[in-house]
Design a protein around this nucleic acid. Sequence first.
DNA 1: GTATGTATTTAGCCTAGCTAAACGAATATA
DNA 2: TATATTCGTTTAGCTAGGCTAAATACATAC
Lengths: 167, 167
Amino acid sequence: MQISDVNQSIANRLHSAAIHLLRRLRKQDEAMGLSQARASALSVVVFGGPVTIGDLAHAEHVSAPTMTRLVIGMERDGLVRRERDARDGRIVWLKPTTKGTRILHEGRRRRVAALAEQLATLTERDRQTLASASQILERLLRAAPRPATGERPVSTTDVRSRRATRR
Amino acid sequence: MQISDVNQSIANRLHSAAIHLLRRLRKQDEAMGLSQARASALSVVVFGGPVTIGDLAHAEHVSAPTMTRLVIGMERDGLVRRERDARDGRIVWLKPTTKGTRILHEGRRRRVAALAEQLATLTERDRQTLASASQILERLLRAAPRPATGERPVSTTDVRSRRATRR
DNA sequence: GTATGTATTTAGCCTAGCTAAACGAATATA
DNA sequence: TATATTCGTTTAGCTAGGCTAAATACATAC
């Protein structure tokens, strides 16, 4: 099949590009104590918070224990605060601290600095292609991996709305 | 500055997209004993080999000890073979085994299967955007991170040519 | 022939992923 | 009301994959 070959090529190139992009950016992030996993989780807390640990795990597509440990580290480093829910004693709400918000934004600034020279060498058209592609990808990845499994589709953007219905 | 804001936005969205893409694909790869790191390294060996461990580390932008360990695992699992260089006793050449080549291709097939449904929902135009973007990215990332540091620019594609000059 | 350089490995550390299982709190049911 | 179940989080313990520092073994230059 023609279309499947095209998709295979796209998937594999995306995979390769993603791996190498992350390796490139890792150093910048870690220079300020913001690993990739933390940067990604923290940005959900900063832009989408307050959020529970479980929701954050779903939004980030990692297991709950993994997120618990990330949160422990971020709390120890003063990036987020825990707050128990008044009505439901099982729930922990996460909020960014001032430091957390600042570090996240610094991280984002450093990250672009690491790519800026190279992004600047691109034509406007190429930059536009990258911008569009990242949007297409996020939209694509936000969809459920396998609609048939019944796993609820969770997106970073509906974290608030899901919890908003909690009583 | 206008352009820097645009670049920041692109860099951050790419970062986010890359993280989530890899988390999505990881399960598929690991289902057949091909982690992301192995899949990426193995593809260099299969498509660009024979290659030395040091060159592979450079091509993958990881340290030599990291690559040594990856190779140990891949060799243990019969994906690659080591061969000492006849003229230079320090050098280890890596070649894919039949199994390694097969597994790599299976991995690539599974990987697209994991994204296929979703790629199929895209318009031809969007698919084209993703394809272009991955090419632009690989080209961008192949360039030296910081041209000033004197670090030699190493690409997956010139692995052969670099080694071809060895006597 | 000694010193220096190069390719790989060893040792030891860290983060971040996982599953299984424990725990405490909430909720449903008999 | 007592009991069972479900839910959110944490603990415990494993693995892979990243790093640096230092050891090893070979090659080369002086």
